[in-house]
Simulated assay, not measured.
Amino acid sequence: MDRLETRELAYFVAVAEELHFARAAERLGIAAPPLSRAIARLERRIGVRLFDRTSRRVSLTEAGKVFFAESRAALAAVDTAVRRAQRAARPARLVVAVRSGTGAGLLSDLLEAYAHRPAAAPVELLFTTDQTQALREGTADVALLCASSDATGLTTTELAVESPVALLPVSHPLATRAAVPIEELRRIDVYRATCPPVSLDEIVDRVALGQLVVVVGESAASRIGDAVVAVPVVGQAGTTLVLGRAAGAPTPDLKAFERTAKDVAARRLATAGTA
């Protein structure tokens, strides 16, 4: 069998997502009959029925469900290859994906130290709530992550551990405590065990308005303003910060950035130990 074309996969994915040939055809900018014929040809080519069709509904077969997941992954890989090739043709630079407020002090020291390296590539920050996706899509070269992030398929380097702090409204009864047990936080109605996928500014706003209580790494405390306080948390492990990148051999610029990150993290740890 000749290798399938990306156009065939795109047609299939559109129908699989819509489960309606007319809607999928409209989305693709073609007529429904040619799309139906293209799917039938695809099924004949691979020797597998992908859809169950009746006059009332279209559904994926079990084989179709598997092919759907693999087709989306294949199309995403093609898109990633294009983006990485386009970026490789541009002047050298490193794109660092980071979530607002994550490891702010560490990141600041890292960027300053890297900028002083001989022939350091320019660094561009990509602020996002999904750093791992940016790495997988090829829109970022490296990311500062929490170790709890899904790093499947990525290479990570542990940098530091941040102590946990609870973000509380300044008027909250626990806000004046020197520290608060995690068990007490869990009894608060608006407590959330994980941060919502929004920016740190929005998290702080929600906390200030009494809509959220959440535990974050201590570096976020420098960004919370006057309406929110950060109280150390007892009974919960700290947040491990890691540097993540796509698997494979790193470029010289990326290798230098990783080496700088480890050096900076080690110096910060030594300084904290002597404080």
Rank of each mutant, 00 (worst) to 15 (best):
R44M: 10
L75V: 07
R83E: 12
L75T: 07
E43F: 00
F51Q: 06
R44Y: 08
R53L: 04
I39W: 00
F51H: 06
L75K: 04
R49A: 11
A74R: 13
S55F: 08
A74V: 10
D79T: 08
F51G: 07
E70I: 08
F51D: 04
I39Y: 00
V82D: 00
R49E: 12
V66E: 15
A76R: 13
F68K: 09
F68E: 12
A81E: 08
G64C: 08
D79H: 09
F67M: 11
E43D: 02
R56I: 10
A40Q: 08
R44G: 10
A74F: 06
D52Y: 06
R56P: 12
A40F: 03
G47C: 04
R41N: 10
R83L: 10
E62D: 14
A63D: 15
R56A: 14
V78E: 12
A81H: 00
I39E: 00
L50H: 03
D52C: 01
A63H: 14
R83I: 07
I46C: 06
E70A: 15
R56Q: 14
R83H: 06
E43P: 03
S55P: 14
L42K: 03
D79N: 11
V48H: 10
F51I: 04
A40H: 10
S71C: 09
G47K: 05
A63T: 11
V82S: 00
R83S: 03
V48T: 14
V66S: 15
D52F: 07
R72K: 15
S59A: 14
V82I: 12
R49Y: 02
V82A: 02
V48D: 11
D52S: 12
L50N: 05
G47N: 03
R53C: 01
T54Y: 01
T61G: 05
V58T: 14
F68R: 13
R56E: 15
R56V: 13
A74E: 13
I46A: 03
L42N: 05
L75Y: 03
V82F: 00
R49H: 11
E62Y: 09
A77M: 06
L75A: 06
S59C: 05
R45K: 15
V78A: 11
V66Q: 14
L60E: 08
A40M: 04
K65R: 15
L50Y: 03
V82E: 02
F68L: 13
V82G: 01
E43T: 01
A73E: 15
A63C: 10
R83V: 09
V48L: 12
E62R: 14
A81Y: 01
A63S: 14
R53S: 02
R57V: 14
V78C: 05
V66R: 15
R49N: 09
F67A: 10
E43G: 02
S71G: 08
V66I: 15
S59V: 11
